[in-house]
Design a protein around this nucleic acid. Structure first.
Lengths: 223, 223
DNA sequence: CGTGATCTTGAGGGAATTCAATGTCGGTGG
DNA sequence: CCACCGACATTGAATTCCCTCAAGATCACG
């Protein structure tokens, strides 16, 4: 929708130095091309030929699917270091766009596939990464059968873990994004967060900054 | 829980002749060893070292996870022809047991991995199969954010497609299994089915046999 | 300082769960 | 053969949790 031309410097702390290589070992790596995507711009669309693999350098990406009735399901958030768009099939199964202005390393799928024959570790990495993605989706599916409290607690803990921050989580995404990721409404997400605040599980210095004040209790909710 | 010793012949029609090979092409296949698992017996447990890959020959298998509070989430049902237990990591991420008495073809993971170096198609197949599993889980996650009607309709259509039966679906699993798969209660599943019956979308000659009488309407619910 | 986007809060309603009772089916033993 | 038994399934009534609709509040930005 909105294509901000200006490039906004990401203020979120990058937890791990994003590797500049996609596949292979250090001696024999496949470098990607860095690209910039403005906030809310599409990276690829569902059903398009899967010609590229991607890795987040900075910013954040969401993969999503729009249902026939207009509802949106966010399938994943990708943060710096995360690889996405790894399709074994010929087409992307989801759409992806930038949550905030993002730097993305892009590599041609065909060049990775060509490397498979020479470098056996590449094939193994493709499998590993897909398997990791599978585990992530299984975990989200687990969230989706739980109560709103459990879902939000699980989300906060996941974000804290992935940004490697012990207590302070800086969210790049809106409440609507969180709601569409957790299968809840924006109001329920908001209410649950204020409830957590009232119970002193978290503090909310601003709507996008969340301080985890009682990890043990949150973990208990995560059951 | 119950370990029936007697082997009950599966009465469910096998939709596709289950292939006897796991990996590689026809000339160069890796055969598995056929094993029998009685109803409700465990095939592997979550956290155990992933030493084998499996393929269903006959019967049905469920992969599941037990939550801390005792709830059970069924992550997948595997039917004849389906391959499961394909872990890239060292441990199984779910438990698996036989829904009904089942014949399972078992192959050592290490023997498959050894074949990778000689046969490049094996690596590709491992990736492909994991990617297929990923797509299946994404689809289930999509179901989990929908209404009870939509979930049950989606489940029926999925089962019809996978058993390649146009109208009559023979369910190997109980209502509780379906409920744990769809993230609903057993009562809601039952109520939704009778509602479908009253609306003439399905017929229920017995609780485990379901005739799809109005696919178009079911598809519409699947939105 | 105004404006639109985002977020929070409130009230009411609805869908699914919970709790409880009844019904049905298949297998087994009298 | 049929009557009983346990497992499984259906149905009903009450409750709960989350959604919907609506109104304010807050924030970012021009």
């Amino acid at each position: 929708m909105l294509n901000h031309i200006a490039t906004i410097a990401s203020t979120r702390a990058v937890p791990t130095p994003p590797p500049s290589i996609f596949f292979g070992d250090e001696r024999n790596s496949l470098p990607g091309v860095a690209m910039r995507f403005a906030r809310n711009t599409e990276i690829y669309g569902e059903g398009e030929p899967a010609e590229y693999f991607y890795q987040v350098i900075s910013g954040a990406v969401r993969a999503y699917k729009i249902l026939d009735d207009g509802r949106r399901q966010i399938r994943a958030f990708y943060l710096p270091g995360d690889i996405f768009g790894l399709e074994a099939g010929e087409e992307y199964a989801s759409s992806a766009d930038a949550v905030v202005d993002a730097q993305i390393s892009v590599i041609k799928r065909s060049s990775v596939m060509a490397r498979i024959d020479q470098d056996r570790t590449v094939a193994r990495q493709l499998w590993s990464l897909t398997s990791l993605e599978l585990a992530r989706v299984q975990n989200r599916a687990l969230l989706l059968v739980k109560s709103a409290e459990e879902r939000v607690a699980g989300f906060l803990l996941e974000m804290a873990r992935r940004t490697a921050s012990m207590t302070m989580v800086q969210l790049p995404m809106s409440r609507q994004d969180i709601a569409d990721y957790l299968g809840l409404t924006i109001e329920t997400v908001s209410r649950t967060l204020t409830q957590f605040e009232n119970s002193a599980l978290i503090a909310l210095p601003s709507s996008r900054r969340i301080e985890l004040r009682n990890r043990a209790a949150l973990n208990r909710l995560n059951s």
